[in-house]
């Protein structure tokens, strides 16, 4: 045993560093937050209150509103964004290599910029006066200026629009890599097999891209459930909670109302929802996926 330990000593030392980092910065905070969700938190004197935070949370209409907003945001952005990403990747894939590289770089650029910067740019674009970029565009068609971020009917949609037009770079790179991985001979065999363009797409390309689509779906849903920066920067959850998402609510509860226990409870409910939804997605889509 000692000899074995000695043989592998360096391996254990190398592993120890990331394990320690994981224990200190990931596992401990998770356990601590979980404990906190059963406490009325105070730095010096936390009080154990059982399920009170959970009861408070489930009795709060804003919590349900934020859940609904998050759900709506996810449902309206993830599938649409995957479709947009796929179409862009499909068209880029038809181009010559140098143009592919150019468009990959261009499309990935927003991912390099910080979310705060992007939000500020969009904030300017959503300027509610007639001089705002989007409103002036609509003005060409004789439409009245819209108060994009200040009215309940358009605020959440405005945040969705941001994702439709800006967050496809990483997905495009993944799709392009997956498309490049499909052997050319499959399409040649399909050509000889009398397959039409649509048949080649629906029977070969799309099924063979399913692993990538599933990955983008799962990660997209997880990211979407945690949408925060755009809400924080542009609407602060308003107007009238129209854009309050669950992540923003957690932030508000913790850092504006200093209810850390309640915020922890909300976080664990969000975690549970993400885990359940991810499992459902894998169960539903992974059976016929070819790895």
């Amino acid at each position: 045993m000692v000899q074995k330990l000695r043989d592998h000593m360096w391996a254990y030392i190398f592993i120890l560093v990331p394990v320690l980092l994981f224990l200190v910065f990931t596992l401990y905070p998770i356990i601590s937050a979980f404990m906190m969700s059963f406490q009325r938190y105070h730095v010096l004197n936390p009080e154990w209150i059982g399920f009170d935070n959970y009861k408070t949370m489930f009795a709060d209409s804003v919590f349900y509103k934020s859940l609904w907003n998050t759900f709506l945001f996810t449902v309206c952005t993830v599938p649409v964004n995957i479709a947009i990403t796929f179409m862009l990747a499909y068209f880029i894939f038809q181009l010559r290599t140098k143009w592919q590289t150019f468009f990959k770089a261009v499309m990935y650029l927003p991912a390099v910029a910080s979310g705060v910067t992007i939000s500020l740019v969009w904030f300017a674009m959503f300027d509610p006066t007639k001089d705002g970029m989007i409103n002036s565009f609509l003005g060409f068609f004789g439409m009245e200026p819209v108060m994009w971020l200040s009215q309940t009917s358009t605020a959440l949609f405005s945040l969705m629009l941001m994702t439709y037009l800006g967050s496809h770079g990483a997905g495009i790179i993944l799709y392009l890599a997956a498309m490049g991985g499909i052997p050319k001979s499959l399409y040649e065999a399909a050509d000889i097999d009398h397959a039409s363009g649509w048949a080649k797409f629906s029977k070969i390309t799309w099924p063979l891209l399913k692993p990538t689509t599933l990955y983008l779906l799962v990660t997209g849903v997880i990211i979407s459930f945690q949408v925060f920066i755009s809400v924080y920067m542009m609407t602060q959850g308003g107007p009238d909670f129209a854009t309050t998402t669950i992540a923003y609510l957690i932030y508000q509860t913790a850092f504006m109302f200093y209810e850390f226990g309640l915020a922890s409870a909300q976080s664990f409910v969000l975690t549970a929802i993400i885990v359940v939804v991810s499992i459902i997605q894998f169960k539903m889509f992974s059976t016929d996926v070819e790895y």
Binding site: P183, S185, L186, A189, D191, I192, A195, L208, K210, E290
Partner: peptide
């Protein structure tokens, strides 16, 4: 190719994996 009335066996077989 589809109109030439030929069939081809490829080096990598080109079977549709899914």
């Amino acid at each position: 190719p589809k109109d030439r009335d030929i069939a081809m066996v490829f080096q990598d077989y080109a079977l549709y994996p899914h």
